[in-house]
């Protein structure tokens, strides 16, 4: 069960908003990426968001570029889950591959306010608003996506599947 405070956004938040292009030269230092979340478009985020917060957003969250840094920066900032009315597909896949939990919840922006506390059950796909006691159903994640998430992302998932872990790889 994930519990956290809501940081709310509108529709069509693009990946340039989430992670400005000027920092794309940061390719490997993930902690450094986390220092630039929403830096230009929503500068208040870095001042007021806290690790453990839950992002709730409108439709088409993460549209635009394929930059994985957009999902990486949120994960390493400490965002616990992103819940949106809908997602752009590359961001959606990136989040899963990085082990950043993500849920599609049509209608959620009308039932959740900035600063609300939520309780999220990823496996059941249920979001509870602790302020209103409202229970919001999300679109359930396919089982193999839950499996990737529960392993912590595609890298640990493939290490297990291919047996390419610490022992030096299988190839």
């Amino acid at each position: 069960m994930i519990k956290g405070r809501v940081y709310k956004f509108g529709d069509n938040i693009n990946t340039d908003d989430i992670y400005p292009g000027r920092y794309l030269s940061i390719t490997t230092d993930r902690e450094e990426m986390a220092k630039h979340c929403f830096e230009l478009a929503y500068p208040d985020f870095l001042k007021t968001a806290r690790p453990g917060d839950i992002i709730v957003a409108g439709k088409n969250f993460g549209c635009g570029s394929s930059r994985e840094q957009a999902a990486t920066c949120l994960k390493y900032f400490g965002i616990s889950v992103v819940i949106a009315e809908s997602f752009a597909r590359i961001f959606y896949r990136n989040a899963i591959n990085l082990g950043l939990p993500i849920l599609i919840a049509p209608g959620i922006t009308k039932r959740v306010e900035h600063g609300d506390m939520l309780e999220v059950d990823l496996e059941k796909g249920i979001v509870k608003n602790l302020r209103t006691n409202d229970e919001i159903k999300t679109i359930p994640l396919p089982s193999f996506i839950l499996e990737i998430l529960s392993e912590g992302g595609l890298v640990p998932y493939l290490r297990k599947k291919l047996g390419s872990g610490e022992k030096g790889g299988n190839k």
Partner: peptide
């Protein structure tokens, strides 16, 4: 288009 980690999976 896909992300970097997904491409790592493709490379593997």
């Amino acid at each position: 288009g896909i992300g970097g980690t997904e491409m790592a999976g493709v490379w593997a």
